[in-house]
Design a protein around this nucleic acid. Structure first.
Lengths: 210, 210
DNA sequence: ACACGTCGGGACGCAACCGTACCGTCGTTG
DNA sequence: CAACGACGGTACGGTTGCGTCCCGACGTGT
């Protein structure tokens, strides 16, 4: 089944890793600067100091290229170590998110790709996979632990919980783009804990005892 | 100072409103379909059934065109009527937001423009103005009222409060794009109220009584 | 009734980018 | 050490979009 006649590429006939890296870096830069919509192979090649052919040899198209980058980036998952309390876990998670979103590249590329996902099924699929994975991790690990500890009700809606956890910080850093002092994270974390406690109680009016 | 010699345009020599509307609608459609980055005047003209000249007569450039649309859309502000309680006000606000983000056009265009704002100063300015206005309205009116009623501490951080209010719903509907039943809004509202109550207390560890 | 002046539309030159074909180069393999 | 074969780069035709110019059409004001 495998091709026997051809011998494996060797010597000069093997992809040079340095060039591949240069392309990857250039794609990130270009993606941040002009967005996916206006991303052009020529510009990437220019910026990387590389010929277009070098790019087309590695990826079939612009879409392939970006999808590959997304997969690579989505691969590195958060460890989400256990601190013993929901509040502690949350603080760590938010810190990691905040540090990630502080980088210009990340805070420009992520919203752009998310917006693009709304109209490009392939990107949406890859991105949703990464997102779902992330959300499930957060939901299962973080919320799951809290439920085991008795900090949250077992019938907490995981999806709603994720919204409460991720939403405010994402809005602040990626949409509103207002500066966020890392000192504010603990306060945000405790606010979210309060919200999570209430979220599982259902739409109650008036005050409820805890 | 004003030009006296020329008489005002009249008759056939006046912009036809129907065509202007057609262009506006086409821009929205196109913006949702391909995004700002790939928005082309030619495509807009094609979709509107209009010549390019008709567009250039009205707006100087693509940027002008979109900026004008943003201004127009940002003009219509939320009434934010007073229900007598923070929870009630919140429910209304979230309902309005949810209904707005349910529209395909809105949920595609808004994230796209927000992402574009990260790299286009002109769009950023216009959008930030609208956003700041919105956030200030929410902050002042909604939070301000709650403070007056004694529902929240006077030294509540308005900006952090807005993050907590807007973030979760925006994340859910515009980013995660998971379906949201309007029935879930009250629960979300009460969760946010709980978060707001805690947010002004500072980074407290351990449990606090409610 | 006529002249005015902007209307909308088609055509044009220019620039950018796509994807491919072809070129000489170079390290390994037999 | 010679030949292999993919390497990276340049050049090319085709496509798309920008912004402008010129055209006949047309409704109002004199």
């Amino acid at each position: 089944m495998t091709t026997e006649k051809r011998r494996a590429p060797a010597g000069a006939a093997v992809l040079r890793g340095e060039i591949t890296s240069a392309i990857r870096a250039a794609v990130m830069q270009e993606l941040a600067e002009v967005g996916y919509g206006r991303l052009s192979i020529e510009a990437v090649a220019r910026r990387a100091g590389v010929s277009k052919t070098a790019i087309y040899r590695r990826w079939r198209s612009k879409l392939d290229l970006v999808l590959d980058m997304v997969s690579a980036a989505a691969g590195r998952n958060l460890p989400l170590l256990d601190t013993g309390s929901l509040l502690g876990d949350l603080e760590i998670l938010l810190h990691v998110m905040a540090r990630a979103l502080r980088h210009r590249l990340a805070s420009q590329i992520i919203p752009d790709l998310l917006a693009e996902a709304a109209r490009n099924p392939q990107i949406a699929e890859k991105l949703q996979a990464a997102l779902d994975d992330y959300q499930q991790t957060v939901g299962r690990i973080l919320i799951g632990r809290a439920v085991e500890r008795g900090e949250l009700s077992p019938d907490t809606d995981r999806r709603a919980a994720v919204d409460l956890i991720v939403g405010p910080l994402y809005w602040r850093m990626a949409i509103s783009r207002a500066p966020l002092d890392l000192d504010e994270v603990p306060r945000l974390a405790s606010a979210i804990v309060a919200a999570l406690r209430v979220a599982c109680l259902g739409p109650v009016r008036g005050e409820v005892e805890v």
